[in-house]
Design a protein around this nucleic acid. Structure first.
Lengths: 222, 222
DNA sequence: TAATTAACAAATGTCGACATTTTAATATTT
DNA sequence: AAATATTAAAATGTCGACATTTGTTAATTA
């Protein structure tokens, strides 16, 4: 059995990262050391080490002697993140189509089924839907077999999730908007399994860019 | 005037990162806290914070209670890094060709000239050549205008530089190999200025992948 | 002699304290 | 009253010390 006890810093890292991505801590908000120490029940060192890692991940910034702050957001950054994410996801899918085997196909079909079934339910839990949605897209690109590209993809997803969270916060009612393009998911799967690289990559780029305009709107009113 | 005094951690970060990328610290090598403190003349906290940032950048790993180590390398990772880097660079060039203006063109021509002139010199300094080479490629993609994509590009370059450093370390004589494909640079510029996306992206991918096989060889003998 | 145990030395991760800087609140001057 | 200067309070970043854990060497046992 492997010794997988993590150090304190990496434990805080996860919680703190989540609290930033989920929008509990808002952009530009000051992160008081004292407050955080109490909130997460930790000492100075591990906390600062976790914050340091979040700096490297662009979720936190620090000015010398002026403390830590949650990274600011902007419409330009929102657009850039989503555009880059679209390009990367398109790359992933193209590679997955090149290299994906039978297991990949099977996993895609399975994930698609789970998403479809749940989307038709009446009173659905947003968390659950988002989880299945994420798993479907992950299954699609899983065949690409490039750890580094995957890592880039993940970090971009984290960043875009923050924008989506902030938007959801202001538009709790419009959750249904998330599921607008449910038919696109089916199309995506079919194109991928048909190994149609061109169409797949084109559709995925559009699919990812869909929510941008909506989020932009509510962001500019802030 | 802006107050741009950095904190101690970010100062160490640069030095330490450089020493890892340049191969002064070898893969898997243990990074003793005590030694590093003396080497960089700093205390525990800022050092550990710098190390934490390098963990997020995948240049350092840490096992709980067992200290910090330079990230390991492998042929698989080498290949993955360079392949991903090639894809990203190709993306950048395509976008640059789409969005690049007259200033972009001018800068590309200028950088190309500087590289060409220096490449013809008899006794050249490797550092200087690498610098001009890097600037040429940067000029080529500068038109892409996506900070996030640029950032991804930079982090991949850092990682690939480490492999190149380790290879150079074992093959000081073969430095000339670096300049093998000098003619490709001219071709690259022409294609970009002709706004030929397809050919540009194809050539840049090949250009980036060129050194992989050479580095692989010397790596597998280690 | 090999293997196991015990004891020691080295190194890590965490905390609390201190000096320095920033921020705020108050007083002073024009 | 507005602007500046002064003082006090809060917060930051750094260090050294301490408890725990790890790794190594020596001793004991089979």
């Amino acid at each position: 059995m492997t010794d997988s006890r993590d150090n304190t810093a990496s434990q805080i890292l996860d919680s703190l990262k989540n609290d930033i991505i989920s929008g509990e801590f808002l952009p530009k908000q000051k992160l008081h050391i004292k407050t955080l120490k109490e909130k997460y029940n930790v000492g100075t060192s591990p906390l600062r080490e976790a914050l340091s890692q979040l700096i490297a991940k662009d979720l936190v910034v620090s000015k010398n002697q002026k403390g830590f702050y949650v990274s600011d957001i902007s419409i330009e950054d929102l657009t850039d993140i989503y555009q880059t994410r679209a390009k990367i996801e398109s790359l992933c899918i193209e590679m997955a189509i090149d290299k994906g085997d039978d297991y990949w196909e099977a996993k895609v079909i399975a994930a698609s089924h789970r998403l479809n079934k749940y989307s038709k339910e009446n009173d659905l839990d947003v968390e659950e839907w988002q989880s299945r949605h994420g798993e479907f897209h992950e299954a699609l690109v899983a065949g690409c077999m490039s750890p580094r590209l995957f890592q880039i993809r993940s970090s971009l997803i984290e960043k875009s999730k923050r924008y989506r969270s902030l938007w959801l916060r202001e538009n709790v009612s419009n959750i249904a908007t998330l599921k607008i393009n449910q038919n696109e998911h089916a199309a995506l799967m079919i194109l991928a399994l048909e190994r149609d690289k061109k169409s797949s990559s084109k559709l995925i780029e559009e699919h990812i860019m869909t929510p941008v305009e909506i989020i932009k709107k509510s962001l500019s009113q802030l």
